[in-house]
Amino acid sequence: MQIPITGFIYESDDKSLNGEHSHVLYVTSFDGRRVHIHGFSGFTSFDVDHRHDYLGRTEPAQSGVPHVHRYFTMTSFNHGHEHRIEGITGPAIEIPFGGHYHEFKGTTTINGSTPHKHKYSGQTGNEV
């Protein structure tokens, strides 16, 4: 089964990945439907005398149908370490006058000289 996908590829000059350039695929439609993403940001819980902030974008999802988004980001580097944040958002929550957002929550990976984790929760921004 073939599913039509449209988008574009961006070639990056960022040499941070083992000294080699990279390509990023931006999908703009999937099976004839427009796709969209959401930005998200926030702060983790305060544990072991510190907290972290985080910033990221969800993976694309089809517009106009019930959906959720996968997300992944790293926290800020505080107290000599960082944590991974990843999960799946809740379903779309409509915004009056157009658009929607998603709620998300979870627990970071364990890290630090005193091994620990943090909780996080929030809402994405409107669809982009």
Rank of each mutant, 00 (worst) to 15 (best):
T109Q: 07
S113E: 14
T28C: 03
H79T: 09
F104G: 07
S16Q: 04
H67W: 00
I9A: 05
P96F: 00
T107M: 13
T109W: 10
H116W: 09
S76F: 01
H79D: 13
G106C: 09
S45P: 10
I85H: 15
T58W: 01
I37Y: 15
F97A: 11
N78G: 02
A92K: 04
P60W: 01
I88K: 01
G32Y: 02
N18R: 14
T73L: 07
K105N: 13
G87Q: 06
V24A: 07
D13V: 01
G122D: 04
S45I: 07
G98D: 07
L25A: 11
E94H: 07
D49H: 15
A92F: 01
L55Y: 11
N18Y: 06
G125S: 12
I3F: 00
R70Y: 06
Y71K: 06
T89D: 05
H38M: 05
N111E: 14
I93P: 01
M1V: 12
G7Q: 02
S45A: 13
T109D: 13
L17Y: 09
F46G: 11
H50I: 05
T108F: 06
T75G: 02
T58E: 06
T58Y: 07
V27W: 04
S41P: 05
H102P: 09
I88T: 15
E11C: 04
G106F: 01
V128C: 01
T109G: 14
S16N: 07
I37H: 09
L55V: 09
K119L: 15
E127F: 03
F104K: 02
I93E: 08
S113I: 11
F30G: 05
G87K: 04
G7T: 08
